[in-house]
């Protein structure tokens, strides 16, 4: 915080500040392009319409973080800020159990209680905060700064979602856009500080709620009758793709994942999701497809 406070820091704080945190680079080889994984201090936006798998993907990454090393996880701590009041602990636990059971299968008698204990020890690495207004979010972020200092194992901050207070802020901020965006701008500035000073990785979801009229207008010359009959997937990508949060937030982003719900395949009625990742460091867009099962996300290989 200030020089005077730093003079009295503990060894753990010193380590958190100087040595840096564990890298999350290999967290999602399916999703992120090669060398494009979330390095220290990266900010990743998960953007998509309702039911396009954003939260499911968040659970997938969070579980990878909190799982112990011998189960293939990273064994790091995660803070989850729930502004949507949407966090489903039961779902998280059922995925966690599915990931833990294969390793505990050797001795079936004690497997169940072992899994239960393993789940609990994983969950201890996760902290959950509920926020109900943008002011509370801002103050909570300030409060969390102390937590980041004192816990070097804490690597990931998840905000689901950062756009939750968008309309309330727009309406209560008066005429000027600057004031409407003030709280979110301050939050983004603070997040920028976290990633710079503490090397925290930030994952945040944004709801796709703004229709991108310009791109829709651009595609009309290609023949509206064709377009309305079978909507090509590339158009869906840009349909609700408009970034609408404040510029400060857009500037600190290093990766952007755009989620898309595809049409159901008529064969097995399985809902397939697509995620397109673009980063500031690599060129092009990496796409991957996945579907959601009871045991979490399964990626579809070879696409």
């Amino acid at each position: 915080m200030t020089e005077r406070v730093r003079m009295a820091e503990t060894g753990a704080q010193l380590l958190a500040r100087v040595a840096g945190r564990q890298s999350l680079k290999d967290i999602g080889q399916h999703v992120f392009p090669e060398d494009g994984g979330p390095a220290q201090g990266d900010v990743v936006e998960f953007h998509g319409v309702e039911g396009s798998g954003k939260t499911e993907m968040l659970y997938h990454f969070m579980i990878h973080c909190v799982l112990p090393k011998d189960s293939g996880g990273l064994e790091v701590e995660v803070v989850f800020i729930d502004t949507d009041y949407h966090f489903d602990m039961l779902r998280l636990v059922s995925i966690l159990e599915a990931r833990l059971t294969p390793t505990a299968e050797e001795n079936a008698d004690s497997a169940e209680s072992e899994t239960e204990e393993a789940v609990r020890s994983c969950l201890r690495r996760l902290s959950v905060v509920h926020c109900s207004s943008s002011v509370q979010l801002l103050l909570t972020l300030h409060y969390l700064e102390g937590t980041f200092c004192s816990r070097p194992a804490l690597c990931l901050l998840v905000i689901d979602s950062i756009s939750a207070f968008y309309w309330v802020d727009r309406s209560s901020g008066g005429e000027s856009l600057a004031r409407q965006e003030a709280n979110l701008r301050k939050c983004a500035e603070l997040l920028n500080k976290f990633r710079r000073d503490y090397g925290i990785v930030v994952f945040a979801t944004t709801h796709a709620i703004m229709r991108n009229y310009s791109s829709a207008a651009g595609s009309t010359p290609h023949g509206s009758s064709e377009a309305s009959g079978s909507t090509p997937s590339w158009r869906n990508f840009t349909d609700f793709d408009k970034p609408y949060l404040c510029r400060t937030w857009q500037r600190i982003l290093t990766q952007r994942l755009v989620f898309l719900k595809s049409e159901r395949s008529p064969v097995d009625q399985k809902q397939v999701f697509t995620v397109a990742c673009s980063t500031v460091r690599t060129k092009g867009v990496k796409k991957c497809t996945f579907y959601v099962t009871e045991d979490g996300i399964k990626f579809i290989e070879g696409q």
Binding site: V79, L126, Q136, L139
Partner: peptide, 23 residues
């Protein structure tokens, strides 16, 4: 002021425990 106005983090294990007993 921070302590008064912020939302406090709850450990995932505690939340799960609470959820099991209350849902």
């Amino acid at each position: 002021l921070l302590a008064q106005h912020t939302a406090f983090p709850v450990s995932g294990a505690d939340l799960y425990e609470e959820l099991l007993s209350s849902t």
